[in-house]
Every structure is written in structure tokens, then in C-alpha cells.
Amino acid sequence: MATDPLHQFRIEQIVPLHLAGHDVSFTNSSVYMVVAAVLITALLTVGTASRALVPGRLQSVAELLYEFVSGMVRDNAGAEARPYFPLVFSVFAFVLFGNMIGMIPGTFTFTSHIIVTFALAATVFVFVTVLALIRHGMHFFSFFFPSGAPIVLAPILIPIEIISYLMRPVSLSIRLFANMMAGHTMLKVFAGFTITMIGALGAVGWLAGAVPVAINVALVGFEIMVAFLQAYVFTILTCLYIRDAIELH
């Protein structure tokens, strides 16, 4: 069981809790969600505690994060999307911290669970749809027929556009979940090779087992990049959806 690469994704109850007939126990997943939220808030508040004109290390990180997401919103969602900057920032920071905390051995990666990524993606999806409906009213539905396309193609195009629109939260959530899960599983599989080799080959196994460890060192670097990249992709797409909601093409 120690080498089961899927063991790391198991949800472990910590404080059993029931609410209206549902099991809402505080689990290892919940712990790291709380940790991520606390760390992000701490970075932003403790980092700016001195409000220094010349920033220190923590303040530099806070400012960097702020300006990075701020730039992403400005460049991909447009100037009108400024009011939604806090939401985009929360999404990016939460996913990024969830992914990065998961890179620490022994932790739990809540972004490797489809239900979490789907709930986040669905939040974004509902948000941009409501936003588009509020801004454009019934005109929003023109979004499903590309302007300039021949009207005879409407029976084909409209279903495609509607399906592609509805698939947004699905692709958004599966991309993040699958990347995180695959990466973590791969690390565990390679680590398992070493343990198997040592168990089966003894002294030779100690030498041969170093190879998967070396591969894992490279993979950890790669996974850290993936952890950042997937948070970035999730956020960029959120920005683009917000832009669609504001501009409707």
C-alpha cells in the first residue's frame, strides 16, 4: 500500500461533521484549502505590513503576484474587467498555492480532485454567464451565432457554439485536475520503482534505485513548472471568458 501511487489522493477524515444529512467532514483536503487561504492572506497582509517604499522580500513577492495577475486581467480581459480583478486574483492564488503546496512531500493536493477543480470552474462559468446576461440581456444569446456567418449554417453552428460554451467548465476543470493528478502519480510511480528495486535486488537495488530518484529530481522541477503553468492557464482562460462576457466577440 505504501507504493500505491493513488494512495496520496485519498481523502482522510479529520473532524467528522454532518450538515443537513450531508457528510461535510473536515478532511486532509480541507486542511490544505485552509492552509492555502491563510498563506495567501498572510502574504498580502504581512507582506505589506511595513508599507515600505523600497519593498522587502515578502513585500516584493506580494507586489509581484499583484502586478502579475493585474497585468493578466488588463491584457486578457480588458480594462473594463478591473472590477473582477479580486475574483481572478483569488482563483489564481488559490489554484497556484494549492498546486505548489502539493509539491511538498507528504502534503495533499486539493487541486488533484476533479470535484474541487470542477467547482472552481463552475464558479467561473456561472459568474461569466451571469455577468454576460446582466451586461447584454437577451442580446447575450447572439454569442452562439458568430457574426458574419451565413444564416444557413445556423442549425450547425448554434449547437456547436452552445456545446462549446457548456464544455468550458468541463475542459477547464479536467485540464487542471488531470495535470495535477498525472504529475503526482508519475512521481509516486518512479519513487515506487526505487523501493521495489531495493526490496528485490538488495545491494544492487540501492545502486539501480538511484536512477528513478534522479529522474524524479528532474520530474519535480518539471512538476513545479506544471503547477505554475496550470494555475496560469486556468486564470488566463478565466480572463478570456470574462472578456467574452464583456465584449460578446
Partner: peptide, 12 residues
């Protein structure tokens, strides 16, 4: 485990 995860995701 879905209810618990959604619940705590919503809270956090």
C-alpha cells in the same frame, strides 16, 4: 467525499 470537498472549498 464530494459534499465535504465542495463545502470546504466554498468556505475557504
Amino acid at each position: 467525499t464530494f459534499a465535504s470537498q465542495i463545502f470546504w472549498l466554498a468556505i475557504t
